[in-house]
Design a protein around this nucleic acid. Structure first.
Lengths: 229, 229
DNA sequence: CGTGGCCTTGATAAAGTTCAAGAGCCGTGG
DNA sequence: CCACGGCTCTTGAACTTTATCAAGGCCACG
């Protein structure tokens, strides 16, 4: 598939005149990365941003003791690493391919010229950043105002909603990664899944999770803490 | 002071041709709010965004149990409530005046027209949102990867840096609010300030904090946990 | 001069992490 | 083809951090 058709699939470039898409195609750098490969590290100078073409990329922070907090997991069409493009300075976090992936790199200067020439592109980028802020707001709320069971319940409901409300979920990340996404560790996640099982909220079978009590899960996500036995 | 000169003071409107500033001045709604007054609530429909003219505004979330997490404290010149303008939907958090304040309100549609006509304004707004994302990234890292002493140390160092590295700090918010900003409660904050005193890291006297051991604080902020006695 | 908010301190309890050990699973290479 | 090593996942026990509940002091403002 050629670069142009990939570009047109990304929400970021929606509604752009084809002339501008062609201009974009001229400036992209096509890049293949292997599973586990770092795309950039926190503190690197950002000379441009990326868009996932295929595969998955995780954005994360690491503590001095090695604990990891995943901020995002991005799939095809989603841009990442834009902060230094507009705010200057370095990347605020790390980016790593979770599987063999293909990404497009957009050099900063050329992209800014395109934005100046095309307000629609600017508005699209503003929308992307705004949605990201919204998601961070939720993540911060979860981390500071909810306990782990509440965060897990919210995540399961989110998964369910993003699949038309199905009760049969299939994790497409390891439980270790899910723990990192929820701001905890695998041991804690394992115990809480166990408790949810015992309480009849869910039924787990490896990476498959069946929601038994949607209402109970909603209460839990809402309250942020366990409701007494 | 007239609206025009206030606008020119905000970084958001830096570098705009005076014609556009005048256009902006035409669409703003000037608004006075008293201490403790809500400017908007989470879930309200966002029909525009705001800029602080004078006073201070806090953006915060509240848990179902009433615990509060402050996301930002904004002062003169800083915009807030922009997310719904570009991403649509509702405000993701609450905004409340911390003291008698004056704010400008910019209706969404008129502002978007201005952006379309002025790429410089778009780039300024992109810079604002990007910096906000950067700050959230740090907040998330702190909440999930550091313990309260580490967060407090980081905050004190931030205060010091923002005042040219002085060792004499003066809190301009109550300790209860500081606790909320750090994602904890007043009791815990009080205990940790006490421990920092005992260890000779700082010296407190009401809202005045003197840094005695800058290096020690940096270690603490870096490690995120206490270093053994 | 009383009242409400803010701050501090203590005792207690809950949640989560750490450390340790063992089971299951999978791909690689002999 | 199977054994090995590595990784994920689970479970238990001890420990640490933080929140909760309760009480008292302080200060500012009406």
């Amino acid at each position: 598939m050629d670069i142009l058709s990939h570009l047109s699939l990304s929400p970021l470039f929606e509604g752009l005149p084809s002339g501008h898409l062609e201009a974009l195609a001229m400036i992209v750098v096509d890049q293949d990365v292997n599973r586990g490969e770092l795309i950039f590290s926190e503190g690197d100078n950002g000379k441009g941003f990326y868009v996932v073409v295929s595969g998955r990329v995780k954005i994360f922070k690491v503590s001095s003791e090695g604990k990891e907090q995943i901020l995002h997991i991005f799939g095809p069409g989603e841009p990442f690493g834009e902060v230094p493009v507009f705010a200057g300075r370095q990347f605020p976090a790390n980016a790593e391919a979770m599987e063999k992936s293909r990404v497009f790199f957009f050099p900063r200067a050329a992209f800014i010229d395109l934005i100046k020439a095309n307000p629609e592109l600017a508005l699209n980028m503003l929308a992307v950043l705004s949605m990201r802020l919204r998601r961070f707001t939720v993540l911060i709320e979860d981390l500071s105002l909810k306990e782990v069971p509440g965060r897990l319940a919210a995540y399961l409901l989110y998964l369910s909603e993003s699949k038309q409300g199905t009760r049969h979920l299939e994790l497409d990340i390891t439980k270790t990664q899910l723990a990192s996404l929820l701001g905890t560790i695998p041991e804690t996640l394992s115990r809480i899944l166990g408790r949810m099982n015992k309480r009849g909220l869910i039924e787990t079978e490896g990476p498959r999770i069946r929601i038994l009590d949607m209402e109970g899960l909603k209460e839990l996500a809402e309250a942020g803490v366990w409701i007494p036995d």
